[in-house]
Nucleic acid binder design. Structure first.
Length: 649
RNA sequence: GCCCACGUAGCUCAGUGGUGGAGCACUUCCUUGGUAAGGAAGAGGUCAUCGGUUCAAUCCCGAUCGUGGGCUCCA
């Protein structure tokens, strides 16, 4: 007898271990659920439904809609894709094909890159395989047998994978038709489960094992869901996400451009974008002053010697721009300057400009610092990955005793700001990089401990990102999710014992002796450019009133109302409201349509009635709702009030 | 940086080895119209840049620049 839990909340069944598979038993007991279940769980492990139970074993079922079930479904889809590719292109070598968030991929080694037509052909071939409803047959083999098989098949990558498996690992193969793949499993009972629920999305290059030292493979991305509806919904979501792409909206709303002539990765802010950015920066200045930061400013470039002293020259040079400046014709060598990729140097020079006492600490220097970093051309992406950006950067210099409280205060700052924008985020702790880093092990340990402790004291969950720290210290990264589900690093807090050492920073302690301060590098929004890019997608271009470059647009019905319209515009502008008037000789419907497409929060319609009553008739951006006409000063008060509410953190 | 795709009017996109097109936007005129597009006419292009093949190149080939999708998700 063995035990089968048909449902979590139902009594388990005691069944005869009669040599038949779980699938056969299930078909007998609960035919209705046959297509809902994709695999079974035995203890911790997921197993195939074609497993033959033996006495005293215990199984529960994995639904295809569960996260684990979906993963199995997608993994099987990847397997079918590999089979399809091998059928169409026998010379291609297969590598790996995992399930990923929202889908799956499979990497192939092919001399000939796949074209979009190939993609279609592969999908067609997959459909035909799915239609055949072929079984996935599991076979467990010895290491030698597996090696012999894949050697014969010429699947070098599989050989490499087998050789890396731990000694005691069970090696399993899955066969469907003529295709054999090395695979841990489990898989779907057969391919018919995939009917109508998968779609191939794109082809891209990807390095074997993610390293640019390795061969470039052809990666095919696809997605699969439990049912047709879920697949359609996901594809629809991708379409919607495209509509709020910040690059598209940035052009449509005339916020910014990036032009070949000026250079890749360099953002040019148009009037509305520059205004939006200014509003965001003003918000930041107020927030920082409120929290005891002091605003400072440093130069755009500093002598290269200073970058050598900080370690940037040694560790960050390939990302930096340099320029040589000659004082006169005879000065052949000139002086080399490095354009700043970070803002910390000037801040340290400020600290060092006079003798500091422990009574002065902590010092919190804040700068909206514009930096240049030479990023590889392939990673540039709209506002999200650029070569020149402005950071809301601060460096906090404090005593070791103050470190904990300062980190805590920053974490609260981050929480407040993210809450105001309505972002969800999660945190990652990054530790010392294996290559290229400075400072002693003891300092790294001390710095990492301080960060961990602050996270734990505040009860914050975090993931560990081993080896991803800055070259001068460990860090806490805050990652936001954008509209396409991509993660972007925004806030970061980095603990640094090294630069204070290199720049010989000190303060006089209560004991009258010199001590070394600790430095925290931190940003809240991170890059203003990136943050605005994320904001555009987050709000789909419909910015909250406080951030909208144009808050109000006045729309006159005919030219006869223009004089009053202009007076209303002036009154609102005097009240510090960002307003324009559309006095063109156009129909009201057209003016409304355009204002709506520009996502302006309030439209004020002005016609005979409003002129006569000295009022304005507001129309809201949201769902085209209108509210009762009111006097201008009343409307101004309404706008002010709404902004105030939005900015309450 | 590497792989693939792409680059035609301000925008979205057709198109062809021999004359470059549409819609929207723009300009002018008509229209004075109350909550998402009134009408007519006009102007607008070194077909990314440079080089090659050809009698002839926007189209074919190469290079450069730029844009897009990827390059951590481990049988």
């Amino acid at each position: 007898m063995y035990t089968l839990f048909l449902r979590d909340d139902a009594e388990p069944l005691k069944l005869e271990a009669d040599g038949r598979t779980l699938l056969e038993h299930l078909a007998e007991r609960d035919r209705g659920r046959l297509r809902e279940v994709v695999a079974a769980r035995k203890g911790e492990a997921a197993v195939d439904l074609r497993t033959v139970p033996v006495d005293d074993e215990e199984f529960s079922l994995i639904e295809k809609t569960s996260p684990e079930g979906l993963e199995i479904l997608r993994h099987s889809a990847a397997h079918v894709m590999a089979e399809a590719v091998k059928a169409l292109f026998p010379e291609v070598k297969v590598t790996i094909g995992p399930a990923i968030k929202d889908g799956f991929y499979y990497d192939f080694d092919s001399d000939k890159p796949f074209t979009p037509e190939d993609l279609k052909a592969i999908e067609k071939q997959m459909k035909s395989l799915v239609k055949k409803g072929r079984r996935f047959v599991r076979r467990e083999v010895s290491r030698e047998e597996a090696l012999a098989l894949f050697r014969e098949l010429g699947e070098d990558y599989k050989l490499e994978l087998i050789n890396e498996l731990p000694e005691d690992e069970t090696i399993s193969l899955y066969e469907s038709g003529d295709f054999v793949d090395l695979c841990r499993g489990p898989h779907l009972p057969d391919t018919s489960y995939l009917k109508g629920v998968f779609k191939l999305l794109s082809v891209a290059g990807a390095y074997w094992r993610g390293s640019e030292k390795n061969r470039m493979l052809q990666r095919v991305y696809g997605t699969a869901f439990a049912d047709k509806e879920a697949l359609q919904q996901h594809l629809h979501l991708l379409e919607e996400a495209k509509k709020r792409d910040h690059r598209k909206l940035g052009r449509e709303l005339d916020l910014f451009s990036i032009q070949d002539e000026a250079g890749a990765g360099f953002v040019i802010w148009h009037p509305k974008g520059a205004l939006l950015r200014t509003l965001l920066e003003d918000f930041e200045r107020r927030q920082h002053l409120k929290r005891g930061y002091q605003i400072v400013m440093g130069p755009q470039m500093l002598k290269a010697d200073l970058w050598k002293r900080s370690g940037h020259f040694e560790n960050y040079r390939e990302n930096m721009y340099f320029t040589r400046i000659r004082e006169n014709e005879g000065d052949a060598e000139g002086q080399v300057y490095g354009i700043k990729p970070m803002n910390c140097l000037a801040h340290m020079l400020i600290y060092n400009s006079k003798l500091r006492s422990y009574r002065d600490l902590p010092l919190r220097y804040f700068e909206l610092g514009t930096v240049h970093r030479h990023e590889p051309s392939g990673v540039l992406h709209g506002l999200l990955r650029v070569r020149c950006f402005t950071q809301d950067d601060a460096h906090i210099l404090c005593t070791p005793e103050q470190l904990q409280d300062e980190i805590t205060a920053i974490l609260e700052f981050v929480a407040d700001v993210m809450k105001m924008f309505g972002f969800s985020y999660h945190m990652e702790l990054s530790t010392r990089p294996e290559e290229k880093s400075i400072g002693s092990d003891a300092d790294w340990e001390r710095a990492t401990d301080a960060l961990v402790k602050a996270l734990e004291v505040n009860g914050l969950a975090y993931e560990i990102n081993a080896g991803d720290g800055a070259f001068y210290g460990p860090k806490i990264d805050v990652k936001l999710m954008d509209a396409l589900g991509r993660e972007w690093q925004c806030a970061t807090i980095q603990c640094d014992f090294t630069l204070p050492e290199r720049f010989d920073l000190s303060y006089i302690g209560a004991d009258g002796e010199k001590h070394r301060p600790v430095m925290l590098h931190r940003v809240i929004l991170g890059s203003i450019e990136r943050f605005i890019g994320i904001l555009i997608e987050h709000y789909a271009g419909a910015f909250p009133l406080w951030l909208a470059p144009e808050q109000v647009r006045i729309l006159t019905v005919t030219e006869a109302h223009n004089e009053y319209g202009a007076r209303v515009e002036e009154a609102l502008r005097d009240a510090d409201i960002r307003v324009t008037a559309d006095l063109r000789n156009e129909k009201l419907g057209k003016k409304i349509r355009e204002a709506q497409l520009e996502k302006i929060p309030y439209m004020l319609v002005i016609g005979d009635q409003e002129v006569a009553a000295e009022t304005v008739a507001p129309r809201l951006r949201e769902a085209g709702r209108t509210i009762e006409p009111m006097p201008v000063d009343e409307f101004a008060a309404l706008v002010k009030d709404e902004v105030k509410k939005e900015l309450q953190t």
